[in-house]
Structure formats: C-alpha cells, structure tokens
Write a protein that binds this DNA or RNA. Sequence first.
DNA 1: TGCCAGGCCCTCTTTAGGGCCTT
Length: 209
Amino acid sequence: MLANSLIVLDFETTGLSPVQGDRAIEIGAVKLENGIVCDRFQALMNPGQPISPFIESYTGISNQMLAKAPSCQQVMTDFAAFIDGSNLLAHNASFDARFLNSEFDRIGETVRGEFACSLLLARRIYQQAPNHQLGTLIDYKNIAANGRFHRALFDAEMTAQLWLIMLQELNTGYGIENISFSFIKRLAKTPKAKVNALLASYTSKDVNY
DNA sequence: TGCCAGGCCCTCTTTAGGGCCTT
C-alpha cells in the first residue's frame, strides 16, 4: 500500500551538486502511515565547510548555527536508522536522492527504498498550476502553511501534505483507491498528454502493478 | 536573486537547445 510507511524527506545543502563538493546541512523528514504523519526527524549537521551568504539567506541557517551542530556522519547514521529501508518521497526527488546517496556513501550506508517524486506527479495532475515549485503548489491547493519554506522539516511536512492531497484527488476524481507506489511512479513517468488516458484506464488490477 | 549540476520534458526535436525544479 502506497501510504504505508512512506518517508517524505527534504535536504538543505551548501549548494546544488555533491559531485562538486556540496554537502548536506539539514535533513527533515516525516513518516507517513496510512495517510497520517506518525513520526518526524529533523537535524542540522556541520558540513565541515562554511556556507555561502546566499545559502544563509536562502535557508535562514547560519554558519554559527552549524558550528554547534553534530557532524554529517552522526546525523546521517541516525537518519539511516529512522528510514530503515522505507520507500521515499521528495519534491524534485532527483536532487534529494543525489545528496542522500552521497551522504550515505560517506558512512557506508546504502539507500534501500525506492524514491518517488511529488514534482513529477504534480506536473502530471496539476498541469494548469502557475508553476510547480513547492511553495506555489501549496498555495495553489490552499494548504495551510505556517512555517518557513526552505527549512528541511517544514518543506518535508508541506511535501507530505501536497502528496496526500494528490492521492485524495486521484481517488475522488478518478475513483482510484489503494493505489500502489509503483503505479504512482508509472504515472509520473507518463507523458503529460497521456495522463488522462492512463487514469481513465485505471483498474483494480493496477493496485499491485 | 544569480552561479555551480543533473534529470525531466517540451519543441520550431531525436545529428539539439532551453526551461523548470532542487540548494
């Protein structure tokens, strides 16, 4: 079942590319079970390098805050225990997956769960949205947002709420129930012009697709 | 708000280019 034990996560980082030496500075995540947030994880981590004024401004996380934070190794070890092989979700998952893989590589961990992407799904089912940035979609769907975007836990919470709304609308709009994780991934990879046809053709046999 | 990268996805495409997303 899709909503069972799904970890929604978000990284704040020193930049865009771990290949270029960028590191994680904060991880936030919520655990969804049966459509309900049942656990949370949040931690700043010291990347061992100063962050730029741009990142300080963008995230509200300062070098002073990170100087007091535990190491990436310590935090990511704790986070590996938190996710424990669950399937994963993020907004623009390719970005978070790169950093999760990079930070896990450094501590000898591997990502065992599968990743889904709320951005790809939103681009399919909200084709009329002004754009598909997380903040825009939260506003577009009138989801209550009391917090600061670009902090990891808040973005993870908002991504989780957006995800649940999308599942609910797939249910009410297309009669799709008990949708599988793999069907959502299939939907996210379907060309936009063929999304409606796929949804209209959905049958119960797709539950375990 | 920009740069760095990479995946997705569209189009005046596929022998390519550029916008959108993430920090």
